[in-house]
């Protein structure tokens, strides 16, 4: 077994902080042959992370962050459509992971856990944003279902595709204002200047974009809420 420092060095070399997007095929960074059947579902670099966590959890968290942060933010932003929210949300997932020592409990790979947690939080945030009547606490609700039905797993992807298509179909001005505000994080006044319109017009465009999203996603919520209810019901009926 490698020593901690040596292992860290290896990881540092092999894990560039910004994943190179043009890389045609980001094959697993490590290829480790499976040593036992019990770990059959834990593949590639996950095993290295496991070893690292066993030796130094703090170092492990830092490297896990290095490896997945960019991709997770990329994923979260598809749902919440705000770079700030996406970044905060992913940072929170990692903070909990460390502070509550979740890495000691999870039975899946770290990667699966992180993606599931980010999706779950992003979904809750979106639900809160579109139905402000729920309290913000429910958006930060941490209790995540331990396992998901295949249909639920797929539904997340379909949800962000739906959001993407709603945004693609916004009127051009409306779309531009929305993206400037949410992805580039510009203030109303800056957007107004860039688009040569008044700030109140910017506000109107943003309200229109949100209400369009709300309207289009109504059907989606319905399905998702039903799914959530059905799994909580299945817990009770065990």
């Amino acid at each position: 077994m490698l020593s901690t420092t040596r292992l860290t060095e290896v990881c540092m070399q092999l894990l560039p902080l910004n994943n190179n997007p043009r890389k045609a095929d980001s094959s697993p960074l490590f290829s480790v042959t499976h040593q036992s059947e019990s770990e059959a579902n834990v593949t590639d670099d996950e095993l290295v992370f496991r070893q690292l966590f066993a030796q130094d959890a703090k170092q492990g968290c830092a490297l896990l962050f290095r490896r997945y942060y960019t991709n997770l933010v990329n994923h979260a932003v598809r749902f919440v459509y705000s770079k700030e929210v996406a970044e905060d949300l992913v940072a929170e997932v990692f903070t909990n992971f460390w502070q509550d020592r979740l890495f000691e409990q999870i039975t899946t790979s770290y990667r699966a856990y992180l993606y599931k947690a980010v999706r779950y939080r992003a979904y809750n945030y979106l639900r809160w944003e579109l139905h402000k009547s729920d309290s913000l606490e429910s958006a930060n609700d941490q209790s995540m279902p331990a396992s998901l039905q295949p249909d639920q797993v797929l539904h997340y992807s379909e949800l962000h595709q739906k959001i993407e298509s709603v945004i693609q179909n916004l009127p051009p001005q409306c779309q531009r204002a929305f993206l400037l505000s949410r992805i580039e994080g510009k203030k109303y006044a800056e957007i107004a200047q860039e688009m040569q319109i008044s700030t109140s017009a910017v506000e109107k465009l943003l309200i229109r974009a949100l209400s369009k999203l709300r309207q289009e996603l109504k059907a989606e919520w319905f399905i998702t809420v039903i799914l959530w209810l059905s799994i909580s019901a299945s817990y009770v009926c065990i």
């Binding site: 997007p21 890389k23 590639d44 997945y68 991709n71 994923h75 899946t108 599931k116």
Partner: peptide, 16 residues
């Protein structure tokens, strides 16, 4: 499902 998230991560890294 493990493989699924592995693919998802790969997919994300190709589509920043």
């Amino acid at each position: 499902q493990e493989t699924y998230y592995q693919y998802l991560d790969e997919w994300e890294s190709q589509r920043p």
